[in-house]
Nucleic acid binder design. Structure first.
Length: 451
RNA sequence: GGUCCGGUGGCAGAAUGGUGAUGUAGCGGACUGCAAAUCCGCGAAUGUGGGUUCGAUUCCCGCCCGGACCUCCA
């Protein structure tokens, strides 16, 4: 029995169309995502892009023999400098600690690490080489210690984000630096004060502008043309537009990214997250209050191109859904490695339709609950594809609780029930319930789990 | 102001030019000493006004509402 696997279709935000994914090189798929700026704990909005990439990479790996996923770390940025100063900490210690925290958070969420995770500060030479080339070929100019990219010299500027320079000018709200030839010109290199991080360059001691690092690192690890570039849709402009402009002007034979993927923003309690509104949540904060896997399921329950509104209620719903799935695996353990069910694969291939894929899990869980071990095996395989249900049901339901004490109380309650002392039996249940432990009387005896 | 995206049952959330998934909540029932879990059943939705069409939730236009971006945010 052979069935043709469904074609992967992705919504390309450059052409604004869903298009069949055709790799530039079918033996080696290459993609780049913009990673974090490491000055503080990552927030749950950052997580969304990481998770979107994770699903995409898992799908590509299932289909292609070799996938190289590059996700950078931005470790030079004025916010980093400012935070280090405020903390009285040196920059290297701040960035390495924050990077480490970021890795821990993503690991807790089941996000697979990238194949290559380049750091901006390790690629200053690559950036300067690109800047030199852009000046040489007339796409950049020096002014007052800065090097600026000349947007008017690139006819394709604005194509990616679908806007024209003149339109942007009409709505501009920001004061334009006097040394710019065109208000849309952006910084490739800027001078550093003695107390700011800086590197020697032909333009004096300075540091890179925001966009050049991604162009330089994408080129170093993926070449002049690669398959997919992604990130949050707030990066579409200016970041991705500028990356593309730099790269295409520096390497005119390449086409930079072939497909552009952008995930929609996250809201929190119906509004954009902001510290002043009190609805700002770091990943760390959320996973201290609920299982990380519940957060993963919650995020995957909405399509990546739709706005997702985070609430604690939804997180709780996701946790209860996982309770049911883990109960199915516990009641009827998987017996074998099964292929990923076609419905799940088809959903993911249709522009990463994770909500539809998750919907396909429910009938499998129903069947597993009814005793179907094949369904249980399929449930596990499908969930693994989504990075879910990776722990044992026992861990999910009972990790970290004082089992001997609970079992002693259960034995005591059993004796009370035999004596038909339901007052005592219910008192024991209430006591455990106050500790977040739920008892379940089944035909085979009493089991327990965290509520 | 400019550009773009979106409005589907109480809530969440798919899909589709031809009887609108799935989950959750609600209600009723089975099971239970009581619960929990599980099972069975029941109601319940395409913002609004036009247009195209045999047929529109889907395509087109207007309106209302929400959101994002418009120079360093995922």
């Amino acid at each position: 029995m052979t069935t043709t696997p469904p074609e992967i279709v992705l919504h390309d935000n450059h052409t604004r169309q869903a298009r069949p994914f055709v790799p530039l090189d079918p033996t080696h798929v290459r993609l780049y995502y913009c990673g974090p700026t490491v000055y503080d704990f990552a927030h749950i909005g950052n997580l969304r892009a990481m998770l979107c990439a994770d699903i995409l990479v898992r799908l590509l790996r299932a289909r292609y023999p070799r996938v190289t996923f590059v996700r950078n770390v931005t470790d030079v940025d004025d916010r980093i400098t400012a935070r280090a100063r405020a903390n009285g900490e040196d920059i290297a210690s701040l960035t390495s600690r924050t990077t480490d925290d970021f890795h821990k958070d993503l690991a807790a969420l089941g996000v697979l690490p990238p194949d290559i995770e380049p750091r901006a500060t390790h690629h200053i030479g690559d950036m300067l080489a690109m800047i030199g080339e852009l000046i040489a070929n007339g796409h950049a100019y020096e002014a007052e210690g800065h090097v600026l990219f000349a947007v008017r010299a690139f006819p394709g500027y604005g194509q990616l984000s679908g806007r024209s320079l003149d339109e942007m000018l009409a709505g501009a709200r920001v004061e334009v630096a006097p040394y710019k030839r065109d208000p849309g010109d952006f910084v490739l290199w800027k001078p550093s004060e003695p107390d700011q991080p800086g590197w020697d360059s032909p333009y004096g001691r300075g540091r890179p502008g925001w966009h050049i690092e991604c162009s330089a690192m994408a080129h170093r690890y993926l070449g002049e043309s690669f398959d997919i570039h992604g990130g949050g849709d707030d990066l579409l402009f200016p970041h991705h537009e500028n990356e593309r402009a730099q790269s295409m002007c520096c390497f005119p034979k390449g086409r930079f990214a072939n497909v552009w993927i952008h995930n929609a923003m996250l809201l929190s309690g119906g509004e954009k997250m902001s510290k002043s509104l009190g609805n700002f949540h770091t990943i760390r904060e959320v996973i201290e209050r609920a299982p990380a896997e519940a957060l993963r399921l919650l995020f995957l329950s909405t399509h990546y191109r739709s706005v997702l509104d985070f609430t604690w209620d939804k997180l709780d719903d996701a946790r209860r859904t996982l309770d049911r799935f883990y109960r199915a695996l516990e009641r009827t353990p998987p017996i074998s490695d099964a292929p990923v069910p076609e419905a799940v694969m088809a959903a993911l291939c249709a522009d990463l339709n994770t909500p539809l894929a998750i919907a396909a899990l429910h009938p499998l869980a129903d069947a597993a609950l009814a005793g179907d071990a094949d369904a249980s095996s399929a449930l596990r395989a499908a969930s693994a594809m989504l990075g879910l249900l990776g722990q044992s049901p026992d861990t999910w339901f009972r990790a970290g609780l004082d089992a001997p004490r609970i079992e002693a109380l259960i034995a005591e309650r059993l004796a009370a029930r035999k004596a038909r002392d339901f007052v005592r039996a219910d008192a024991i249940r209430a006591e455990l319930s106050a500790d977040g432990i739920l008892l379940e009387d089944n035909a085979g005896g009493t089991t327990w789990r965290r509520a």
